[in-house]
Design a protein around this nucleic acid. Sequence first.
RNA 1: GCCCCGGUGGUGUAGCGGUUAUCAUACGGGCCUGUCGAGCCCGUGACUCGGGUUCAAAUCCCGACCGGGGCGCCA
Length: 433
Amino acid sequence: MSPYRTHYSKELNQDSDGKEVVVAGWVEDIRNLGSIAFIILRDRQGTLQITTFKKEHPEVFKKLVSLSRESVISVRGICRANEKVRNGYEIIPKDVEILSRAETPLPMGIVDKVNVEMDTRLDNRFLDLRREEVRAIFLIRDKIIDSAREFLRKEGFIEVHTPKIISSASEGGTNLFRIKYFERDAFLAQSPQLYKQMLMATGFDRVYEIGWYFRAEEHNTRRHLNESTAIDVEMAFIENEEDVMKILERMILHICRKIEGMEELSRLGIEITAPSLPLPRIRYDEAIDMIRKKGLEIEWGSDLGSDEERAVGDVMKERGVSFYFITKYPLDAKPFYTMPEGNLSRSFDLFCNGIEIASGSQRIHDHDLLEKRLREDGLDPDDFKAYLKAFRYGMPPHGGFGMGIERLVMSLLNLKNIRECILFPRDRNRLTP
RNA sequence: GCCCCGGUGGUGUAGCGGUUAUCAUACGGGCCUGUCGAGCCCGUGACUCGGGUUCAAAUCCCGACCGGGGCGCCA
């Protein structure tokens, strides 16, 4: 037990009534009425009230009312039940220790009644995170990751970590960050794709990685980051992509069940209902029909743009569905390692409320076909030698998916900006903090 | 990469050729024994930078810098 605290704010109850307790935290507000003052103290659980009387403890009173907001203090005093206080208990202080005095004025208000812009919030993220509703996002995020891990372990997946410093363009498609690797150039990985596939040639059979994606795209939108996190899954000896989708949808269900009762959700005004399985599977062809019925023009074969994805999302929303798959994309719309099926592919994207949150497929496991597809995609097999080698000495049929963690958090919690979902976002302009 | 938009006290805003530059909140001081968005009184505090137009620029024009957003791409 910390010498600075015997109780958190929510731990005060009948047992503490009349007893001496020690509480600690940040001074959220001071309401000085002259002879009596109320100090609102915040800790990780919430807030509590310290009530001090000038007549009874003039020294303690003076010390408390002269504090600046957001200073850190530890207070020893008697806990007293009092109906007049919002959470039923107040502390009558005997001693106050000032652990850290906050400068004034604050760069942004924690509980002020003025709006603060995202940019100012991110510049002062440590202050922003003192707000309960902001912390709630990360408590839910923590639970999401914890549940995903719990599910995958139970399903026999092992957690792996693959390199983030790589030698060359791994999949094409996106721009990579170039870095110096001693005397050579290297890149930051856009995804663990090639490595998790190589692991399918080892006998691990089922792996997952919770890691980073780095993408050097100069996009500047509410749903893109240049550094994002993802849950990547790869599994061997599958019959087709349906086996992968089953794991993914069951993982989503498990996550929803684990978070649906969290009190942090109500703090955000969100309700989550676990979806029923199986999730709807909409073939690309059907999606095209839906989009055309909505009055948008789209050519068969092209990937779905934002408007098109939104159109499908709207139709599903009308049907009361938040999670759904779009499957069997045209081969040309998917990366080279995707298993062909005629001019289509054994691929799928998972959407939540109209936002793409995951993408996966059965992969090609035949070396020669893979090399052919690389070439057709305009890539040079020589750049992929180490990867291709894993396909020459026994590679089982396999598939997997990558799910963006920020995307999932954003769509589940109905947040308007993906930067809300990551502690210290990296975007086109932001490199600090 | 393409295209829109914006920069006014610590924070969030109003003003859009001539104002003592609006309001809120924060901050500093004062009054107040039950506050909980405490209240009341007083005070400090701002036009991103550089050119230009004009009798006069926060306001109009050009450029720079810094942001926000959309598209493409994707998680």
